[in-house]
Computed example of a mutant assay.
Amino acid sequence: MKSFALSALALVAPVQAGLRFGCSTLTIQRLDPVVEPGKAPSAHLHHIVGGNAFNVTMEGDVGARATCTTCEQAEDFSNYWTAVMYYKAANGSYHRVNVVNNAALAKGVTGGMTIYYTQYDFTKDNVKQRPIKAFPPGFRMTVGSPATSTLTAAKGHIGLRYNCLTTLLNRGPEMPDFPTKPCPAGIFAVHHFPACWDGKNLDSPDHQSHMYNTIKNDGFTDAPPCPASHPVRMPQVTYETVWDTTPFNNMWKSGDPQPFVWSFEGTSGYGTHADYMFGWKGDSLQRAMDKDNCFYDGCGATKKQTMDIANKCKVKDMVNEPIDGCKFLFRLTQNNERYTNEN
């Protein structure tokens, strides 16, 4: 699969539509209101963007409660989060990897992520799968699993991939694990969510079964119709994150194993995963999905804000623990679902 940045120019035909925008970092905390609601701290650290309703527990209409967002889309109070990347030094210490701005985003995006809501899922011959239904209030989902520990299982998580960046615009091939050599411009991580909903459940016990992925190849590729079990076509949500691993390139000696780990530890990048909490205000996302002939800007269907305003949006520290310069020991519990942290 070609990276989107290199193939976008081929897709500017007016039949394509959807949203693409930047969200600055909101907070970095050990919280997970989807998988571990009410638990502070949660099992591992997360990098979070979006609305300021983010909290230890989140129920109901998030968009109605939030008062600001770190996203360029001013009506998007959703929250988007992934694990945090660390460099593991030879002496056993951990050093947090910073997030940097993706290429071609709005001026002023600080760290954060690129967020996509793909309207037609790049369907074969641009056939529209109508109607595209926006997520309802209270909706949430996850992709991937920190318990994933084999290459075969990682390959089965379609759309969860890495790129070794030569530049911010030259991504190279996608891979299911961390790169095996230093990357000149950092490590690019992408998380594609499924787009077929069962039409009933806002969540499920595993936070995934209420959704279904019809895409069989990685990334922005043709999507077959939704199955009868999950008949409602929704926008395909995608995150892109650029991790600035370049300060550690000179520390990575030739012949050494790759030194990067997620905040849940592990010995590979197989466990990459992401959480989504819907929070668009009113019918704003539905307006965008109903708009034809727009190429990732909403074409006036949604309100935007400048990033100097977005960057003022903050949430308090609800965990009060250091995230830099600490030595963490992580272990996977016997049931492969919860992680514990020992300082």
Rank of each mutant, 00 (worst) to 15 (best):
Phe77Thr: 03
Ser78Glu: 06
Ser78Ala: 14
Ser78Cys: 11
Tyr80Arg: 07
Tyr80Asp: 02
Tyr80Leu: 08
Ala83Gly: 13
Ala83Asp: 07
Val84Lys: 02
Met85Asp: 00
Tyr87Pro: 00
Lys88Gly: 03
Ala89Tyr: 01
Ala89Pro: 04
Ala89Ser: 15
Ala89Val: 04
Ala89Thr: 09
Ala90Ser: 15
Asn91Arg: 10
Gly92Lys: 10
Ser93Leu: 09
Tyr94Gly: 02
His95Ala: 10
His95Cys: 02
Val97Phe: 08
Val97Gln: 05
Asn98Phe: 02
Val99Gln: 01
Asn101Leu: 09
Asn101Glu: 14
Asn102Met: 11
Asn102Trp: 01
Asn102Tyr: 06
Asn102Gln: 14
Ala103His: 09
Ala103Pro: 06
Leu105Pro: 01
Lys107Trp: 05
Gly112Thr: 06
Met113Trp: 04
Thr114Met: 14
Thr114Cys: 10
Thr114Ala: 13
Thr118Asp: 15
Thr118Met: 13
Gln119Arg: 15
Gln119Pro: 05
Lys124Ile: 10
Asp125Glu: 14
Asp125Arg: 13
Asn126Ile: 03
Lys128Ile: 09
Gln129Gly: 01
Arg130Ser: 15
Ile132Cys: 08
Ile132His: 00
Phe135Gly: 05
Gly138Leu: 10
Arg140Pro: 00
Arg140Tyr: 08
Met141Glu: 11
Val143Asp: 06
Val143Leu: 11
Val143Gln: 09
Gly144Asp: 08
Ser145Asn: 15
Ser145Ile: 04
Ser145Tyr: 07
Thr150Ala: 13
Thr152Met: 09
Ala153Tyr: 02
Ala153Trp: 03
Lys155Gly: 05
Gly156Asn: 07
Gly156Asp: 03
His157Tyr: 10
His157Glu: 14
His157Ala: 12
Ile158Asn: 08
Gly159Thr: 04
Gly159Met: 02
Leu160Gln: 13
Arg161Leu: 15
Asn163His: 15
Cys164Lys: 00
Thr167Val: 06
Thr167Tyr: 08
Thr167Gln: 04
Thr167Leu: 11
Asn170Thr: 14
Gly172Gln: 00
Pro173Ile: 02
Pro173Trp: 05
Glu174Met: 07
Met175Tyr: 03
Met175Arg: 03
Pro176Lys: 01
Pro176Gly: 03
Pro176Phe: 03
Phe178Ile: 02
Thr180Ser: 15
Thr180Arg: 14
Lys181Phe: 11
Cys183Tyr: 00
Ala185Ile: 01
Gly186Gln: 03
